[in-house]
Write a protein that binds this DNA or RNA. Structure first.
Lengths: 353, 353
DNA sequence: CTTAGTTGGGAAAAGGTTTTCTCTTACAGA
DNA sequence: TCTGTAAGAGAAAACCTTTTCCCAACTAAG
């Protein structure tokens, strides 16, 4: 057996409580109590055991502890977004909240595959996770898994929840209000809205908020332009808004502000405006959505954008799951967390007159 | 106690092997053997027990299994990159490889904090992970953790490894060769290199490969332009390359190709070239690095770029860890995995004459 | 001297599974 | 009828820790 001749690294056996007890000359029960500040014994005995444990490098086996306590201090994080700039800050926030509380996170990518999802959920349950957080790349789509009637608490974050579940999402309408009201406050009068495809629920939420704010401010209600989430669509939308023939009925006047459905569209809009010799924010103000910093800071000028506070949302979701796991009740329902406007230079200062 | 009046959801107790055995009228030992295709028993007994288990919805407790087998089918994934477009495909590849083999992944973000790192590693060890994968956002930086002399195998992926460790990184020099040789093959003669700051090891690796290929092809060796990883630097570099006074010594001639250190620089370069009325790829070919699709596909024209195959790298790392865990030896050292060139439209077709 | 109480510490069960060993029964062969 | 063997199934140990219960010894009170 030539293969057996290879030097295989051999890993030392972990030291167990039994080892500590033997080394300290006590029973495992006493050793356990000494290390956990339980039971009664002389201070010397306790300290001696602790010192022995330290010197042996003893670390309790979490598996055994979990088995006994019926609590694994582990939660499952389900997502269908691998590449996402949304799920990243979200997951980061969730993870931080949990880890700060001594809870580890199982990461599970379920793609769009229900079989894979089922598999993962069962694996997590088998590993006795204390709870599950479901996360997605779209707020209006279900994960391809059934999380109802699980034997652990479930929280939904930035994904379509089951009815009667506890869920956290961003307040997209509120975010849109922030942007449009900011334009209004700056004195912009003809505010356009260029956004993504109609198949996204947020497109309608934001568009409605856009209309509402315009109405409230007595401004002309233009119809939002629905397209794609891409720079190219930003270019095309500018062509439609600015290259058409001017009409005399008041409509059709050139916008002096564009509220965009995401930062890529906004990037396209800004570039297209510059190509037409229009200055941003001088002639036209632009606000994006998502606050994807790498894009928002690369536009010229840097882009004002709505931030969905996804890290904070994740943190909130994580903490809520923890309290659920701890036995605290939480009212089912969807909690919308506020967005915030990150003002850079693309929206300009208050206008005269 | 008003708080106690709230309806607290009560989760059903998991059904154990003991329950199954009792329901089937056999001992737990027999039940276990029936479900694991071990031991000897009549086919009927086996099937009856299995049916009972199915109907009860029995799922074995992984904690108990892991405790006994001394193998948890769990690995820890350490990273210091939360927002990264590098670590995402990498982690995705790692995760896929592991999950395909029935292994779950603990996600641990250690930031840059050695205390946090230490904490995480200990937590993972306590939870008896079978192995650890260390991942970073920079190939030339250590994670802030000490992973030597652990009692489990460790693999490094896209981060600076300890000596004598097993590590996977991308072959940046090879990737650069791919790009520059592609330009040479297309007949470009004056190839510039615009890249990131000198503090990155890959900048030098790629720059050296760039020089080597030029020399091999008998082309003039221009000094790479080192700057930042940003679009703005792409703009500035074009200004330096194309706006300076023409010199008569052969040097200083305008480049007909620019190999960029990442896609953002390339984006800046392309935009700046267009602003100067130069056509891409007609007058100047451009190749980027990273193949960050959302950028590469948004440039006009779409950007040819070097892809580091990070998902494949991650997959390879995951599989290697698994074989290490399985007792297969692996030679220590750094394995460089090849990049590939994704050709889009920014580098053009072969030139005449 | 007895009784009650306290103190220091150990034995054992529990958590859920796997595996080895042992035991009982049945059956074939002598 | 007796012996040997194989099949089928259970008992128990093991994994490691925590916790409850118990015991022995000692002290203080009556």
């Amino acid at each position: 057996m030539a293969a057996d001749d290879q030097p295989v690294p051999v890993f030392p056996k972990p030291v167990t409580l039994r080892d500590v007890a033997a080394a300290a000359g006590v029973s495992v029960a006493t050793a356990s109590k000494a290390l956990n500040s339980q039971g009664r014994m002389t201070a010397e005995t306790r300290e001696r055991i602790r010192e022995t444990a330290r010197s042996l490098g003893f670390r309790p086996n979490s598996l055994a502890q979990s088995l006994l306590r019926r609590r694994s201090f582990t939660v499952g994080l389900l997502t269908n977004d691998t590449y996402g700039r949304f799920s990243l800050p979200l997951m980061s926030g969730i993870s931080d909240a949990l880890v700060d509380n001594g809870v580890s996170v199982f990461l599970c990518n379920v793609e769009e595959d229900p079989r894979l999802g089922q598999l993962h959920v069962e694996a997590m349950l088998d590993k006795r996770v204390d709870g599950i957080i479901a996360t997605g790349k779209r707020i209006d789509r279900h994960l391809p898994v059934d999380l109802s009637d699980l034997r652990v608490p479930v929280i939904y974050a930035f994904t379509q929840p089951d009815p009667d579940a506890v869920a956290f999402v961003s307040d997209d309408a509120g975010g849109a209000r922030l942007a449009v009201e900011h334009f209004c406050g700056l004195g912009r009068k003809r505010i356009a809205h260029v956004t993504g495809p109609a198949s996204f629920a947020v497109v309608h939420d934001r568009a409605q908020a856009y209309r509402d704010v315009l109405t409230e401010n007595g401004l002309p209600a233009a119809e939002p332009l629905l397209g794609a989430w891409s720079e190219a669509w930003g270019h095309e939308a500018v062509a439609r808004l600015f290259d058409g023939p001017r009409r005399q009925d008041g409509k059709g006047e050139r916008p002096d502000a564009v509220f965009c459905g995401n930062d890529q569209i906004a990037r396209g809009v800004i570039d297209a405006l510059r190509e037409r010799g229009l200055s941003v924010p001088g002639d036209v103000g632009v606000i994006g959505f998502d606050n994807w910093e790498i894009v928002a800071e690369a536009t010229r000028p840097p882009l004002t954008s709505v931030d969905m506070n996804l890290a904070a949302l994740g943190r909130e979701a994580g903490l809520t799951l923890l309290s659920l796991v701890g036995g605290q009740p939480a009212a089912p329902g969807i909690r919308k967390l506020p967005c915030r406007l990150v003002v850079r230079q693309s929206c300009g200062h208050p206008m005269d007159g």
